[in-house]
Computed example of a mutant assay.
Amino acid sequence: MAQTFTSLSAPQVMLWGLLFFGGIYLCFGAAAWLLTKRVLPAAGIGRVLDPRPLQPGQLRRELTQSGVSVLIFGLGMVFPWGLLQLGWARLDPDAGWRQIAVEIIVLAIWNDVHFWINHRLLHTRWLRRFHGPHHRSFVTTPWSTYSFHPIEALMLGNVILLPMVVHDFSFWSLAAVPVFSLFFNCIGHSNYDFFTGVSYSHWFAASRRHHLHHAVHNGNYGFQFTFMDRLFGTRVAADAAEPVLQAFRKKHGATA
């Protein structure tokens, strides 16, 4: 597969990139939507985090912005391909499954570091305007996952470039990054608590933490894990959104 990828032309790489990112976005988004809207509620598993309704036209806006992000991510596959063509990076064609597993773990940790740094920058006054389109989704959906301004998409989409120039990864390790990244991102934006019995600090409570980020618009800049927010003191309190949610419940006569 490594040899096949490097032998493609630039237009072929971009076409396959578009199909890949568009495919995983639609598949994961549809699966998360079906699970959180139909399957899990019917089975009595988990709970909705934010009961407020979606804004008028929100889904159409999210899908439109996500389409632009898919375009950027897909066409952007030419950059890692270009690193290989220039000889600035190499793929390891002989990596065994143990090496691939270790590489994926390392890349997952790096993904969290990279995401926190860029996400924190996007909340500074210089870059905040580029993060605003994503935060228009006060109540998130799985389709919010790629709903970015193009600048934000460029910032988040370069996650594998630095690792590629410092280590010869397997093709499969690098290809896994957008897959697990989108999977966890869909969970984080699902507005659904899948594991109500775990603590707020647990890895499986990522949807709770990211729900709070959208509800209060500061803190919880991390991705799936919590170590970056812990290290830099940017964690949001577990009950930070309660004043907003209680006001909504009171207004609409709800008690839960």
Rank of each mutant, 00 (worst) to 15 (best):
L63K: 07
T64L: 15
T64A: 15
Q65E: 14
S66K: 01
S66Y: 01
G67M: 10
G67V: 07
G67Y: 09
V68I: 15
V68R: 06
V70Y: 00
L71Y: 00
L71F: 14
L71N: 03
I72S: 03
G74W: 03
G74Y: 07
L75T: 14
M77F: 12
M77P: 00
V78C: 12
F79A: 15
P80I: 03
P80G: 07
P80T: 04
W81D: 06
G82S: 13
G82T: 08
G82L: 15
G82H: 02
G82Y: 10
L83K: 05
L84W: 09
L86F: 11
L86N: 03
G87A: 11
G87Y: 07
W88A: 14
A89E: 10
A89P: 06
R90S: 15
L91Q: 07
L91P: 06
D92L: 08
P93K: 09
P93V: 08
P93D: 10
P93I: 09
P93M: 10
D94Y: 11
D94S: 12
A95Y: 07
A95E: 09
G96M: 07
G96F: 06
W97P: 02
W97T: 08
R98E: 12
R98V: 11
R98C: 02
I100E: 04
I100L: 06
I100W: 02
A101C: 07
A101P: 00
A101N: 00
A101T: 09
A101D: 00
V102A: 12
I105P: 01
I105A: 15
I105Y: 06
V106Y: 08
V106F: 11
L107Y: 05
L107P: 04
A108V: 01
A108T: 04
A108G: 11
I109S: 06
I109E: 04
W110V: 04
N111R: 12
V113T: 12
V113A: 14
V113C: 14
H114I: 00
H114V: 00
H114M: 03
F115T: 00
W116Y: 15
I117T: 04
I117K: 01
I117Y: 11
